[in-house]
């Protein structure tokens, strides 16, 4: 018994040490963002006075509000597009029976194996021919076209768990396929929709390569692009840079604490990043 207790304390101690490894970097960053630029290059942990100057100066360095607006616009449209279209397509694969369904579903799976680098260049050429460069269309319109193989797969797996007797009963009652999808199945699918929405939010909010390729016009930039730009300067102003990072992290962290369950679900299923 006593040995057990000692082991528990050991484990608690170990867990605390590991927690420091994960958390201290965040503290360091927040502290840096609250220091006057002159004190960044000193080892003192805290400045004598905490000051928010960096968060204000930031607005002179990059058009923060403009970037924020662009990011929010793209992210919002993407989340709407992906949840709508992946659930619609997922419904077709999970709840309806039709000829060619299984073959097309294998095609969905197959596209997951293909690295995006292979299609990236021709897709760029297509959008260029359409005259869509420097607009948000290349980043948002594709989101309405199924929303990506993984999300379709996820929605379909969820829809498969809806009892088919429920669907058949609705069909016999004369419900149209659309209203079964919209009024019966979709309300049931809230957990899956939330997971897909969060995955999409994380992807578009952080997306760097997409805006980098399609939005060379400064006025069209996103926060991710602006942050990268700010970091790419010869002599980065660390305090301001950290303030910008904290601001950009904030919505992610707030969402995480509100919707922890779906974050974890999304992560354990996909690995979110990359």
């Amino acid at each position: 018994m006593r040995r057990n207790r000692r082991d528990n304390y050991l484990i608690m101690g170990l867990m605390t040490l590991i927690a420091l490894f994960f958390l201290l970097p965040f503290m360091w960053i927040v502290l840096t963002s609250l220091k006057p630029e002159a004190e960044v290059f000193s080892r003192a942990l805290l400045s004598v006075t905490l000051h928010l100057d960096n968060y204000i100066k930031l607005f002179d360095k990059i058009p923060f509000l403009l970037y924020l607006r662009n990011s929010v616009f793209i992210t919002l449209l993407s989340v709407i597009g992906v949840t709508l279209s992946s659930s619609l397509v997922g419904y077709a694969f999970g709840c309806m029976s039709w000829r060619g369904r299984d073959f097309l579903f294998y095609c969905v799976i197959a596209t997951m194996m293909l690295p995006m680098q292979v299609t990236m260049i021709p897709v760029f050429v297509i959008f260029k021919e359409l005259g869509w460069l420097n607009s948000f269309k290349p980043l948002t319109v594709p989101m309405f076209l199924g929303g990506g193989a993984f999300n379709i797969f996820l929605m379909r797996q969820f829809f498969m768990t809806v009892p088919s007797t429920l669907l058949d009963a609705a069909r016999i009652d004369g419900c149209s396929e659309w209203s079964i999808y919209w009024k019966i199945v979709l309300p049931l699918a809230k957990p899956a929709l939330a997971t897909v929405a969060i995955l999409t939010f994380m992807f578009t909010w952080n997306d760097f390569l997409g805006p980098l390729i399609y939005l060379s016009d400064k006025a069209k930039g996103t926060l991710a692009l602006g942050l990268g730009q700010l970091a790419g300067q010869q002599q980065p102003e660390w305090a301001i840079l950290m303030a910008a990072s904290v601001l950009m992290m904030l919505p992610v962290i707030v969402l995480f604490f509100l919707f922890q369950k779906y974050f974890i679900q999304g992560f354990t299923m996909s690995g979110i990043k990359e």
Binding site: F22, T32, L227, G228, P236, S245, M249, V252, I253
Partner: peptide
């Protein structure tokens, strides 16, 4: 509680992660 703490860095990725670590 510890599981949640360990998970938090996983929600940071891409540019933000890179910029933070550039400084760290």
């Amino acid at each position: 509680f510890f599981r949640t703490i360990y998970f938090i860095p996983s929600i940071i990725s891409g540019v933000i992660l890179s910029v933070l670590w550039l400084w760290l």
